[in-house]
Design a binder for these strands. Structure first.
Length: 150
DNA sequence: GCCAACGTTGGC
DNA sequence: GCCAACGTTGGC
């Protein structure tokens, strides 16, 4: 089983939204590195941190599980969709998504500030300079270490 | 294949 | 709202 961290802006789609709907496609990702992870590496049963970005208190707010491994993101060929991409088609899909399932809301946010201050997490991509990946792997060791902060 | 211009992300 | 960092695009 693998561990992940996935970012979302709470004003657009936050953990509270996922809690309401339980299961949701993680669509609209238009970045090749993130796509490759969803397409090739994410498996049903994997666990992911839900990270709130672009907000007052950026950080990890809870847990979800991967409910379905990667499959084509059909919003890419929906002309009315925000992330429409003319180069993607049902015959030759360029973008992929997974389904995520709500698992848990933490009692408090594990803030980015806190993660950055932890020397044991210096190798964690999230805290490294200029990291903009919206989806990233988390080692089992880092995952447990972060959970232990609660 | 280089690289300048442009767009996006996301912390602050 | 600013801007640093990074990814993508497209001319050459």
């Amino acid at each position: 089983m693998n561990y992940w961290l996935m970012k979302s802006e709470p004003d657009v789609f936050g953990l509270h939204h996922l809690k309401d709907v339980k299961v949701e496609p993680w669509d609209g990702v238009r970045n090749y590195q993130a796509r490759n992870m969803m397409r090739d590496d994410m498996k049903k049963g994997d666990i992911a941190f839900f990270y709130h970005s672009n907000c007052d208190e950026p950080g990890i707010v809870g847990l979800m599980s991967i409910n379905c491994s990667g499959y084509p993101d059909d919003t890419a060929w929906d002309k009315n969709a925000k992330y429409y991409d003319a180069k993607s088609s049902p015959e030759n899909p360029r973008w992929f998504r997974v389904d995520v399932k709500y698992k848990k809301t933490f009692k408090r946010t594990i803030t980015l500030k806190e993660l950055k201050a932890d020397p044991e997490l210096s190798e964690f991509k999230l805290v490294q300079k200029g990291s903009r990946l919206s989806i990233m792997p988390v080692s089992a060791k880092h995952f447990q270490h972060i959970l232990d902060k609660l």
